[in-house]
Design a protein around this nucleic acid. Structure first.
Length: 241
DNA sequence: GCGACAG
DNA sequence: ATCTTGTCGC
C-alpha cells in the first residue's frame, strides 16, 4: 500500500516532539470513517537483533473474523534513532512503513504493538502510523505509558478506563482470564469503545489479539532464521549495482 | 532531587 | 525489546 504523507525521520529529540504536537491536530478520534463491516485486519510488530543494531518489522494481514492469514510482509533495517519513551515511532516507524509498502492489499484496520493516543502528546506509534497510512488504527500495548486506571476484573472482556487529565484515552483490558491486561487506545479514525470491541473480537485464547500475535511470531521466526544479514547485504549491494 | 518510563 | 533456568499450574 501507499503512504499518504511523510516527514523526515533523521530528526533531533526536539524536532520529534514538535512534529508530534503538529500531527495530533490531524487525528480523527471517532467512528464516522470506520467501515460498517470489516473484512480484513492487520497487525504489525518489531523484533530486535542482539548482536547488531538491525531489527525486523513485519505486517500480517488476516481475514476478519476468521483470523486466517492472507498475506504477510517483513523487512529489515538498521536502527537510526534511540529508544526513548514517548518517541517510539521515530525508532520503529520507518521500518513499519516499509513493511506496509510491500503489502499488496489495504487492511480495513490495523493493530499496533504500542500506544495510540494514550501518550504524553497524544501521538503514540499507532496514531502516527494510522495517520501516515490513512487507515483506521488501534494501539495495543503490553505496558502502560501514561494515564491512570482502576481495578480490572479478571474475566475476559473486563476493563477499566485509562484516564489522562480527566479524559478517557483508552482502557486497560483483560484479554485472557487471570492474565495481566493490555492497554488499548484509539490510534486514528476510531473511538475507544470500537477499538476495544475490535481487539476483543480478535483474541483467540492468548493475551495478545491474533493480528499482533501473528506479526510477533513472524518477526521472531525471521530473526532466528538468521536471514537478517543476507537480506540487508543484498539490499546494500542492489543500491550500488 | 526522586521516581516513571510503549518497544 | 533481548538474555536466561527453573518452576507453578491447567
Amino acid at each position: 500500500m501507499k503512504i499518504q504523507q511523510l516527514h523526515r525521520w533523521d530528526v533531533t529529540y526536539r524536532e520529534a516532539v514538535s512534529i508530534q504536537h503538529g500531527l495530533k491536530e490531524k487525528l480523527v478520534l471517532h467512528d464516522e470513517d470506520f467501515p460498517e463491516q470489516i473484512t480484513t485486519i492487520a497487525g504489525a510488530d518489531i523484533s530486535y537483533s542482539t548482536q547488531s543494531d538491525l531489527f525486523f518489522a513485519a505486517v500480517v494481514l488476516l481475514a476478519y473474523p476468521a483470523m486466517e492469514i492472507i498475506e504477510e510482509t517483513c523487512v529489515t533495517q538498521r536502527a537510526s534513532f534511540p529508544y526513548i519513551p514517548g518517541l517510539l515511532s521515530f525508532r520503529e516507524g520507518p521500518a513499519v512503513l516499509e513493511a506496509f509498502e510491500k503489502l499488496q492489499s489495504v487492511p480495513d484496520v490495523v493493530i499496533f504493538d504500542g500506544q495510540g493516543i494514550a501518550h504524553p502528546r497524544g501521538m503514540g506509534l499507532a496514531s502516527h502510523m494510522g495517520l501516515f497510512l490513512d487507515v483506521p488504527s488501534i494501539g495495543c500495548a503490553k505496558k502502560r505509558l501514561v494515564g491512570v486506571h482502576g481495578k480490572v476484573g479478571h474475566v475476559v472482556g473486563d476493563y477499566a478506563d485509562l484516564l489522562l487529565d480527566d479524559h478517557v484515552v483508552g482502557a486497560a483490558v483483560r484479554t485472557k482470564n487471570r492474565v495481566k491486561p493490555v492497554f488499548i487506545s484509539p490510534g486514528h479514525k476510531i473511538g475507544t469503545r470500537r477499538a476495544l470491541d475490535v481487539v476483543l473480537s480478535c483474541c483467540r485464547g492468548y493475551r495478545l489479539p491474533e493480528p499482533v500475535r501473528q506479526a510477533h511470531m513472524t518477526v521472531n521466526r525471521k530473526r532466528l532464521k538468521g536471514v537478517s544479514l543476507d537480506d540487508f547485504m543484498t539490499k546494500q549491494k542492489t543500491g550500488f549495482e
